[in-house]
Write a protein that binds this DNA or RNA. Structure first.
Lengths: 359, 359
DNA sequence: ATGGTGTTGGCAATCGATTGCCAACGCGAT
DNA sequence: ATCGCGTTGGCAATCGATTGCCAACACCAT
């Protein structure tokens, strides 16, 4: 069917077609299009013209097969893609995708939850040569009974979780330090009795942020022993449940400063205590973590520790692509991106009257 | 280098390796693994054992090249991936991704914004044989000076926007009908003076929702002529700006019911009028659109028209995969998924005193 | 024993781009 | 005129899985 030299064909044109059109060999076409300088200028122009005329676009499957590389990065999302107030995942994804596109890479989403079944899918992408690198977003290393992502020989970067202990370069926020600074700020406003509503038990962020709260208290001259904690789950319900527990506390036992593991928790907590008749920040100051944009529009507006999502995504992708291309041979263990404390209406200073009133 | 029969090799095992291990031909391996029934059971088991032993996984690039298909779907996101209260995009993406994974498809994100440059990238994926179908999320057809997505010969489905006029099967919410019902509900509560804060000028949802508000008024026996409108942009600032305009209105000119083009607009509006000293819903009832989960935790909690994001994503993917596999030969023009009205604290009924007080 | 039918598995071509190797060519220097 | 060097472009092999075609074989009925 290639007998006729008519250029109109049903299927997409190939290098061979372009070569015929330009009167050169297929190899010349390939080189003209991908190896700048390798082909003399006049020939190159001829090839480009032919390619444009035929509407040629390289077949990526063939190219990938040949060069054994794909310029595609797989993103593995958290266990459970929780939909709440905070859009950290989406924000980071956006900046990561931007950085990838800018470097000519594509992005495949491996999963939206992490049942065992999807780990199978993740690994088939990794081992199937479909991707050139893996970005783990707040998620442990995918593995099945037989296999483990790390055996695929792909560059891997962890975002959000510090997995440098497993030899995975990690791009993270300075969680503990930042939340510690938030605690110090509250202490500076006169607060002495703190409640920390924790995240999902055992989660990296749960542990780090709790540690940060304790350290912040210590630095403020307040004994971490006095810290009350409640278990949350990084979602609204965790905040709601803690709010109910808080309301049930005797007045004199109520902490005046509540530091939440994230914004969703804070939002649930605030709504619950407001509905319970308390005032925020009148009765209790509350601060979240993440920097959800909607926080500024809550009533009262939400104080928070804002993560630099744009920076996190960008850095992770730069590092990963560097590793994939071989430009980065010895990746750093860890890149820490600082957070920014944002104080809004949900916190206030403790005045002398407050103290008198309380004890 | 394949001289030695030792199975440990640096590169991934291929069908040839498995064939050698199992003592059969490569073609048999391929068929045993992909054509159930084509190969006798004992042979198949032998092949499977060999494959497992060697840790074989099919090389997708080679497979894609050969079969000319990829089981990969490209998602094109909106012009601007706005980060606000509503997570509609993320929610729909989640359900779409779930449906894809369930059917063994992968998902590549083509873009996170829509500069001209990214359309180039989108089209190179489409024409490069990288994908088997395209899901357009609230976005027009990607195109460059020379090319247009529709020429790629791929199945395309539009999500959110009704593009059936361009022969693109569309999965959409019943925007106008649903927002009309919200208007009717407010009218049923005694409201007669309405303000609609619009979305981005010219956007499909802007037009549809405005139309829906008008029709809802008509059905409620209120002349659409009395409807006031303000221009928004689907974001917080649009709501804030409208809130300021609202505050500037003379008391007797203030509508009592504000229907917003989406939740972010409503959130911005509410925050602004609250800060301006008004009460919601005391002075004004407000309703949004989308069903942002955080709405339930605002103060006052936000009334909204909730989109069935899970259903939207699922339906779109089912349709698209059907088209890609050829199971669906004559796709429907349009699949409409109904929304659900959610009334919360931000709206209240108009009482006789209100009327007396006003006129 | 023969032919017919159905099943099983192997051979080799194929998808399309890339690249190592080499031949051809041009140009300047001796 | 010859040599040497650098540049240019073509030939053909290669990446790995799939599949049309066909040969070999088993089994049953006549």
């Amino acid at each position: 069917m290639n007998k006729k030299s008519t250029p109109e064909r049903a299927s997409a044109p190939s290098v061979a077609d372009v070569a015929r059109e330009a009167g050169v060999a297929p190899s010349t076409v390939s080189r003209a299009l991908t190896k700048p300088g390798r082909i003399a200028e006049p020939t190159r122009l001829k090839v480009e013209a032919a390619a444009r005329k035929l509407g040629y676009m390289v077949n990526q499957a063939a190219r990938n097969l040949r060069i054994g590389q794909t310029r595609t990065i797989m993103v593995v999302l958290p266990d459970e893609l929780y939909i709440g107030a905070s859009q950290t995942v989406l924000e980071v994804l956006r900046s990561a995708a931007e950085a990838m596109t800018a470097r000519g890479y594509s992005l495949v989403i491996a999963n939206v939850s992490r049942e065992a079944q999807t780990d199978e899918h993740i690994l088939s992408l990794a081992f199937g040569g479909t991707v050139s690198g893996v970005l783990l977003m707040a998620t442990p290393v995918p593995s099945t009974a037989e296999r483990n992502l790390m055996q695929a020989g792909l560059p891997v970067v962890s975002l959000h979780f510090d997995m440098s202990g497993q030899n995975i370069p990690s791009v993270i926020s300075n969680d503990s330090e930042a939340i510690g600074q938030a605690v110090e700020a509250l202490a500076g406003l006169g607060h002495t009795r703190f409640l920390h509503i924790r995240g999902r038990a055992g989660n990296y962020h749960d542990i780090e942020r709790l540690r940060g709260v304790r350290e912040g208290l210590t630095r403020s001259g307040i004994s971490p022993e006095t810290l009350q904690t409640m278990q949350g789950d990084f979602n609204f319900s965790g905040g709601v449940a803690s709010g109910q527990l808080y309301l049930a506390l005797a007045l004199q036992d109520r902490p005046t400063a509540v530091v939440c593991a994230n914004d969703d928790t804070a939002v649930g907590f605030i709504k619950t205590v407001l509905d319970g008749g308390l005032d925020v920040p009148g009765d209790v100051s509350v601060i979240g973590f993440d920097g959800a944009s909607v926080g500024a529009f809550m009533t009262p507006s939400l104080s928070t520790v804002q993560q630099s999502t744009a920076e996190l995504g960008r850095q992770a992708v730069e590092l990963l692509i560097g590793m994939a291309t071989g430009d980065v041979t010895t990746p750093p263990d860890r890149i820490e991106v600082p957070c920014q404390l944002v104080l809004r209406q949900s916190v206030r200073a403790i005045t002398p009257e407050d103290r008198g009133h309380r004890s």
